[in-house]
């Protein structure tokens, strides 16, 4: 008998609530004093992916954490996705993961403990794939379950890739297709195409390791990973930190199968609307970007791809290396960086 536990059954069906809006979060953080230190290379001021502390001239530490409730039914897959997602912030800064700690919230009375074990097995496999080590963790009894990790990575201080590193004339490349949010919503509604949904799960499990290596190889200075704030949310934060404007071509965006159809039917997650609200005044959507594509631009990603600013002369090289490295076949140019205009991001 197949009595596999369905993790999705533990989370509220429908995505209206849960996450804190980026707008409220920025407001709230403003009132908390930030203590400075000359060795802190990156703190939350530039809305970067992780904090960076310079130990000496050779090494800086990258620290980051991320956790969330189940995004899929299978425990091991959930563990893999959560770990790939937590590691991604280190990769987005061009670094190499070194150590990780598991963070578990798990209702031990309602769910068999083997489920927790499977989540941890999934997490371990991705941490091992990254070359990092799990040093322990912390578990508390809480429902619904949540899993993620705190990750420490290293990087040479001169090689750090930041949100604020975009240069005028950079071409923006996105390494994974968008639409994970719509497909997860569609899965909960029972209308997702199973091949498309599986492809979304596979995308989420892929480490951004290769992208990080290529960024170092081709002198990328500004990048981020696209996650909960959606493509435009992250684009806007990067452009603001870099003092530039990012122009995005909506028709160039790589998209997972069935996503535009789901969005077209109104299967749009609650986070999309929060992100759309956050973009007000900072992002201009031109008439050429249809309502559906606007929603795609705001679709919240989990363990999304890297969004990197590449110098023109390296674009085709990076793209062909990404395309030849099979998991990133959908990597595409999505726009370019211009000097600062009246808004941080323009979507055409």
């Amino acid at each position: 008998m197949n009595n596999k536990f369905d993790l999705l059954s533990t989370v509220e069906y429908g995505g209206c609530s849960a996450k804190l809006s980026p707008k409220e979060l920025s407001e709230l953080l403003k009132s908390i004093p930030l203590v400075k230190d000359s060795n802190i290379m990156v703190d939350i001021e530039t809305h970067d992916d992780a904090g960076v502390y310079k130990l000496n001239d050779e090494t800086a530490l990258i620290v980051t954490t991320d956790f969330f409730p189940p995004v899929c039914s299978d425990a091991e897959e959930f563990g893999q996705i959560a770990a790939a997602n937590a590691l991604s912030d280190v990769y987005a800064m061009g670094g190499k993961p070194l150590l990780a700690l598991n963070l578990n919230m798990f209702p031990s009375k309602n769910i068999p403990l083997t489920v927790l074990k499977d989540i941890l097995i999934g997490g371990q496999s991705k941490i091992t794939e990254s070359g990092a080590f799990i040093m322990g963790g912390h578990t508390i009894d809480d429902a619904p379950p949540k899993y993620g990790l705190a990750v420490v990575g290293t990087i040479h201080p001169d090689k750090l890739i930041k949100n604020s590193g975009l240069r005028e004339g950079d071409v923006m490349i996105l390494t994974k297709p968008l639409g994970v949010g719509a497909l997860i919503a569609g899965q909960r509604m029972g209308i997702a195409n199973q091949d498309a949904y599986k492809e979304a799960l596979e995308q989420m499990k892929i480490l951004n390791k290769r992208g990080a290596e290529l960024m170092q190889k081709y002198n990328v200075k500004g990048a981020t990973d696209v996650t909960g704030f959606g493509l435009v949310g992250h684009a806007q934060k990067m452009a603001e930190a870099s003092g530039v404007t990012m122009e995005i071509e909506s028709k160039w965006l790589p998209v997972l199968p069935q996503v535009m159809d789901l969005i077209n039917q109104g299967c749009i997650g609650g986070a999309t609307f929060r992100n759309l609200d956050y973009s007000k005044g900072q992002v201009r959507f031109m008439d050429s970007c249809s309502t559906d594509f606007k929603m795609l631009c705001c679709d919240a990603q989990t363990s999304g791809g890297l969004l990197m600013g590449v110098e023109k002369q390296y674009v085709s090289q990076i793209l062909s290396e990404l395309h030849n490295d099979s998991p990133f076949t959908q990597s595409a140019v999505v726009g370019e960086v211009t000097k600062l205009q009246d808004v941080y991001c323009i979507v055409k």
Partner: peptide, 13 residues
Amino acid sequence: KLCPQPLMMTRKA
């Protein structure tokens, strides 16, 4: 109905 069902129903209507 929870999100995104009301939206889908609106769209369909």
